[in-house]
Write a protein that binds this DNA or RNA. Structure first.
Lengths: 210, 210
DNA sequence: TCGGCAATGTGAATTATATCACATTTTCGT
DNA sequence: ACGAAAATGTGATATAATTCACATTGCCGA
């Protein structure tokens, strides 16, 4: 099953299912139907079953899904049954807010390195104990700290340059917060987080509907 | 043309084209082909032409698109030929980083209100001059400050409650940073920004390819 | 003025994604 | 032990988005 081509959208939905299921666990729900889960996640029930069917059979007919088991299965599918070390490149407003943000650690993502070019920031110790390094030391530290993904929160003008360096350092997963499209070789997977694109989309909908 | 159903993906791409074009303007490029723009944006040239074709004919055959004109046209399409007032709900790490973030104002988005429940924060003046209000005053201040979109950066547990209040206050565009799916009536358009979903997606790709 | 070139705009074809609908399997009550 | 009820898993269908391929159009140089 794992060899069929999986839609990107499926992968994203699996994360959403997982989150919702984790919340349900806390409310002591132990079995859930695709219908109820779908309502909670705002999707079609068949969608959920199809998404899961790409990877196996996880439910019990006539009953539903065991919440706890399904969380474990989804974690397995996504590769979340292990910690992932992250590096933050750019310790400005946004970068430092994210470094302090609890959601990363909660989901198994650990910042083990941080970089900036500002001499005032280099050498400082972050609340999580990580010391900010100069970008010149990127490759060295990334290897030392066994970083597997890089988060770019530099100004847009630096993002491509940093991405190149990350790739050279052997990183092949990048989460890019800078509002530019960065170009990387195929071996590297980039995801973009761009607030203003989302705002533009809202602006469009509000304008168009009025 | 505006009555054909426009793919959501098209709207998002228009933002990306606009950004790229704005950068080109600064480099004194004044005409661009769909091919070159496509390469820069990482999409197919025909895609760009199709996307634009939903809204009209903006190019010159044999020549390309006048960069400046196209930026204006896209702004018109998206409703960005006017300022949009924003409210931030939740002035924690992330909220205050975003309030200070220059990209919003650069693209015509103006924070005119901010809310929190923490008495230590309420009453404080932000760098942009806005004073943090208590969430109890949400409806009143949102109307007073003519806010049209709300950004939710509260803890996940509060997000739905805040969304409800925003809707009651007449807001119909929400950018949700909390890692939950919030439910709103159809009149309201929600976009989600969820870092950990993106990280999960990267984790999947790194795990699957190895 | 005219011919060739370049790049748009767009119908057709392809590919991808989502939904339906139902046969299948399991549980549970009698 | 059996039949009804419930909810999965999935082939078929419908919908949506992307890409192709080319006819069309405007520009420029000789």
């Amino acid at each position: 099953m794992k060899f069929a081509k999986i839609p990107m959208a499926t992968i994203n939905r699996l994360s959403i299912y997982m989150r919702t299921l984790q919340e349900m666990l806390e409310d002591d729900v132990d079995v859930i139907s695709s219908e109820r889960l779908a309502k909670q996640c705002g999707v079609n029930p068949a969608q959920i079953r199809k998404d899961l069917a790409y990877f196996g059979e996880f439910g019990v007919r006539g009953v539903g899904y065991r919440v706890n088991d399904l969380v474990v299965q989804i974690k397995d599918i996504l590769g979340l049954n292990r910690p992932w070390n992250l590096a933050m490149i750019g310790v400005g407003n946004l970068g430092s807010a994210l470094l302090r943000h609890g959601n990363f650690i909660k989901h198994g993502y650990i910042f083990t390195a941080a970089f900036d070019v500002d001499p005032k920031k280099v050498g400082k110790r972050l609340p999580n104990g990580v010391i900010v390094n100069h970008v010149d030391e990127l490759e060295e530290k990334i290897k030392e700290k066994e970083v597997l993904m890089g988060l770019i929160t530099t100004p847009a003008s630096e993002a491509q340059n940093i991405a190149n360096q990350l790739v050279l350092a052997g990183i092949n997963g990048i989460l890019n917060f800078a509002p530019v499209q960065i170009q990387v070789p195929d071996c590297c997977h980039v995801e973009n987080v761009d607030f203003t694109i989302k705002l533009d989309s809202i602006a469009y909908h509000l304008s168009a509907s009025s």
